[in-house]
Computed example of a mutant assay.
Amino acid sequence: MYKRLNKYISDTGHCSRREADKLIESKRVKVNGNSPELGTKIGPEDKVTVDGKLINAVAEDKSDRVYIAYNKPVGITCTTERKVQGNIIDAISYKQRIFPIGRLDKPSEGLILLTSDGDIVNKILRAENAHEKHYRVIVDKLVTDSFIQGMSNGVPILDTVTKPCEVRRAGKFGFDIILTQGLNRQIRRMCEYFGFAVTRLTRKRIMHIDLKGLKPGAYRHLSAEEMKVMNKALEGSSKTVVQ
């Protein structure tokens, strides 16, 4: 079975497809000793190297891929750039190369998934796949009925209007919100529209995976049952990469 070179590299967990394209363009990738073009397709017999190091193909049954749930503390940055102080890769210090699925702002905390499986990254990130993310938010003012209603109905930010979503009060200064979008700093911008400032933001759940039993700064591997449910939920999802 043949696959595009950037997908071949991404599937191994070495980097994202976009980053793989940059490696190819900068001539750091060789296929059978030669510099390939973007869009080159790779077969089982081909040898791929990055900076002279052999990149081995992933197992077809995904048995060699890693799936991790991490409780990100405030101050950790969701980047694979090791030069960035407080990057998530150094924070976890996992033995195998992994990368985060999406991101969680540096001032925010809670659940983020990491993996070496490029296909799952792309499927989960597709907004139209409508995979839920549950957040607990604390703000600087008393939460009112009108605020809850306004957040639920959709808020004009970033030249668009957010999708209607489920919002529930959680104490005098808090609320729970369930999103299927992932706009840049979406919850903070939504709150700012109504004159509220977020003082604490915690992601508690992604799809069916939650933070239960996971202390801040700790990670765990997804269970077989969690993977079974995830794969079932992603069966109809697009693999198109989010730009």
Rank of each mutant, 00 (worst) to 15 (best):
R4I: 11
R4D: 08
K7L: 12
Y8G: 06
D11H: 10
G13L: 08
H14I: 14
H14Y: 15
D21I: 08
D21Q: 03
L23Y: 13
I24P: 07
S26Q: 13
V29M: 07
K30P: 06
K30F: 12
N32G: 11
G33P: 11
E37F: 12
G39S: 06
T40C: 10
E45Y: 08
D46I: 11
K47Q: 13
L54G: 00
I55S: 03
V58L: 11
A59I: 06
E60Q: 14
Y67G: 05
Y67M: 09
I68V: 14
I68Y: 05
I68R: 06
N71L: 05
P73T: 04
G75V: 09
I76F: 02
T77M: 09
C78H: 02
K83E: 15
N87K: 03
N87I: 05
I88S: 02
D90M: 09
I98R: 01
P100S: 05
R103H: 00
S108D: 11
S108Y: 00
E109D: 02
G110W: 03
G110N: 05
L114K: 00
S116R: 02
S116N: 05
S116V: 07
D119G: 09
D119P: 03
I120A: 01
I124C: 03
L125W: 00
L125R: 00
A127I: 12
E128M: 05
E132R: 03
K133Y: 04
H134V: 14
Y135T: 07
R136Q: 13
D140Y: 09
L142K: 15
F147V: 14
F147P: 03
I148Q: 05
I148V: 15
G150C: 08
V161Q: 00
K163C: 04
P164W: 01
R169C: 09
R169G: 08
F175H: 07
D176M: 07
I177G: 06
L183I: 04
Q186V: 00
M190L: 04
M190H: 02
E192M: 11
A197W: 05
I209T: 01
D210W: 05
K212M: 07
L214R: 02
P216A: 04
R220A: 08
R220Q: 08
R220N: 07
H221G: 03
H221N: 13
E225T: 13
E225Q: 13
E225N: 10
M227Q: 13
K228I: 06
V229F: 06
M230H: 03
N231H: 15
K232A: 14
A233E: 12
E235N: 10
G236N: 15
G236P: 10
S237P: 01
S237K: 12
S237R: 04
S238V: 10
